[in-house]
């Protein structure tokens, strides 16, 4: 039953991807990308990744869509020109797809408990929580405790990206576009 729900949602995902590929109105593309994110969040829910699903629904469907729409507004997003058909890109994509299929052919079957992935590290984390040594939500425990150095790195990446956006969009403004943030531009 789980597999069937999963398959239906994945098929819808394929349809939306094809729509994004062939759609030329950028506004529609951005909204389709938001729908794609919501579908992906549902699939993550079926795949038991509840924390990830919640993040994807808030970030992928909410904030990314808002940022895309803001950029569309700033760039006067119109329908773009028909790009000429590129044979090389088809070739590259087909080659990459072939290699991916070749590489993924020997992967363990979907949802099997005996896969090597489930037998090495994960049981230790699960047992610590089962024995009341760690909080019940294993994902939080791994994220903020066992691998807190990784999370420190991720937080720093977010910090860096945020500072980068502020510098790109605000630093060195043209003098004619003076507005409420003019005092920040003196620093650069």
């Amino acid at each position: 039953m789980e597999i069937l729900v999963d398959a239906v949602l994945l098929t819808l995902l394929v349809v939306i991807t094809l729509a994004i590929l062939f759609q030329r109105n950028l506004f529609a593309v951005v909204l389709l990308a938001g729908a794609y994110s919501f579908l992906m969040a549902s699939i993550m829910l079926v795949l038991d990744a509840v924390d990830v699903a919640m993040t994807e629904a808030a970030v992928g469907a909410g904030i990314s869509t808002a940022l895309f729409l803001a950029t569309l507004y700033l760039t006067h997003g119109k329908e773009y020109l028909q790009p000429n058909f590129k044979f090389q890109s088809i070739l590259v994509v087909v080659l990459a797809g072939g290699m991916l299929i070749w590489g993924m052919w020997d992967m363990p079957e979907f949802g099997v408990m005996q896969a090597p992935l489930h037998e090495n590290t994960a049981p230790g984390y699960l047992d610590a929580s089962k024995n009341h040594l760690m909080p019940p939500n294993v994902v939080t425990a791994v994220l903020a405790d066992y691998r807190s150095f990784d999370t420190l790195g991720e937080t720093t990446v977010i910090f860096t990206a945020g500072i980068g956006v502020l510098l790109i969009l605000r630093g060195r403004k043209k003098p004619k576009k003076s507005k409420n943030k003019a005092e920040n531009s003196h620093e650069t």
Binding site: D51, M54, T55, A58, P135, P136, N137, V139, A144
Partner: peptide, 14 residues
């Protein structure tokens, strides 16, 4: 976040 799905990343995004 310790007892159910959630945590700092999700709450910040919300």
């Amino acid at each position: 976040g310790d007892y159910g799905p959630g945590g700092g990343f999700q709450a910040g995004a919300i």
